[in-house]
Amino acid sequence: MSAARKRPRRLTARMRLTLSYTLFAVTAGTLSLAVVYVGMKYVPNYPLTSSNPRYRSDAPSRQEILDTLLNACGYALALLTAVGMIGGWLIAGRVLRPLQDITRAAHAAADGALEHRIALTGPKDEFTDLSDAFDEMLERLQRSFDAQQRFAANASHELRTPLAITRTMLQVAAADPNGQDWPKLVGRLQDTNQRGIEISEALLQLADLGHAPPETGPVDLADTTGRALAAVRDEASALGVTITADLRPAPATGNPVLLRQAALNLLHNALRHNLPADGRVTVTTGPDPDDPARVRLTVTNSGAPLAPEAVATFTEPFLRGRGRTAEADPARRGHGLGLAIVAAVTEAHHGRLHLAAEPSGGMRATLSLPAR
């Protein structure tokens, strides 16, 4: 049972505001009439009679005046109560009308209509602030939900591809077992299986980054980048890419394993999406010249010219240099999650990741972290 169903029923906010307005009006009226009544009773203090005792005065006595005033006060309070109830009900309804719009939008969002927006008009007040915050929350939820749907669909496609390839190769082998080159078939099956394992591990890494903050400690981007460079030297040589490194101290606070993985992914991306021959990669670490309180890692690679609008989408999962089409060359093929993992690692470390197309071709990736 939901928490809303467990709550005891009580008066609505509109009724409580109405009763509050009415109580205030009646209290203020009672005090005002009490002041008048006391003033009439004790001021003036001379008798309301004729100065000549031989003449009988038709003027009412003090007690008669007080009794009449008391009756009039009763009628006035009754009228004030009725006016307070009716006016309070109308005023409360007008004041709470924006809240009703927000409530309807919340119910619509709970039913799945995340595209609905309140767009409350009028002067800036508490209700418009709440409405704007709610609209911003709905917009972020819609973006997150759309990204999750795209991610699930793309992950299913990427994981299904190696499985489908494996099934096809096994079906062909089963149909003609004598006509197969078994060593070649086994090698292809191993490559396809390894691709599925890499995708699964990358997905698990993304999931872990999104659920728990990483353990952090003192780290130097120069050291983590140096270890990542050592791991890709052979791949760079095989692809014919020359790496130039300038690793200056860049002390920060972070998780060394995750930051090494981020540097490794940036290097893999720079190597695999490079020129077919005589490619270049430049790697630098050190203080951020744009912000003395930060350090940064920069990876720049040569390559084909890139459109700036395309670069802005590279951190989306399963987007590769050629869009969602995998490279034909296995040595340059990726699973499309490298930059998505870099973006997740950067966010987990409260850093900034900036991707920019180079005018001469290729891309510059800058990972900036708060300095230690």
Rank of each mutant, 00 (worst) to 15 (best):
R322T: 03
A173K: 03
A356N: 04
V257E: 15
T225L: 09
L297N: 08
R296H: 14
H335E: 08
D290I: 05
A312Y: 12
F24M: 07
A113C: 03
L66A: 07
R150W: 06
L90A: 14
S51L: 10
P8F: 15
A110N: 05
A250L: 03
A230D: 15
A371C: 01
T313H: 07
R97K: 09
L206W: 07
L264Y: 10
L271W: 11
T298N: 03
A238K: 12
L185S: 06
N274G: 02
P162W: 10
R333A: 09
P162H: 11
D135S: 10
A147E: 14
Y37Q: 10
L339E: 06
R14C: 09
R143T: 14
Y55K: 01
T68E: 11
G286H: 06
A270D: 11
A147P: 00
P47Q: 08
T315G: 01
D329M: 00
R143D: 15
G39P: 00
L138G: 04
V38R: 00
E347V: 07
G279Q: 10
P289E: 13
A270K: 02
D278T: 04
Q100W: 03
A371W: 07
P370V: 13
A3G: 00
T285M: 06
R364W: 06
V241E: 03
G279S: 05
S200G: 02
R16L: 12
A328N: 05
V342Y: 08
A250F: 06
C73V: 09
Q149F: 08
P289Y: 10
G336Y: 04
R54E: 12
T166Q: 10
T30W: 15
N269V: 05
T49G: 01
D176M: 05
L79I: 14
R104D: 10
P47K: 02
S51Q: 09
G88R: 01
L353P: 02
L204D: 13
N154G: 09
S156Q: 11
Q205I: 05
R333Y: 04
S51W: 03
A245D: 09
P289L: 08
L209T: 12
T103W: 00
V36E: 07
S50R: 01
G361I: 08
G217V: 13
T22E: 05
H268L: 13
L221S: 08
P276D: 14
A109S: 04
T242D: 11
E64A: 15
A356E: 13
D176P: 00
T49A: 11
T285I: 05
D234N: 10
R233C: 06
G336W: 00
I243G: 03
P60W: 15
E235G: 01
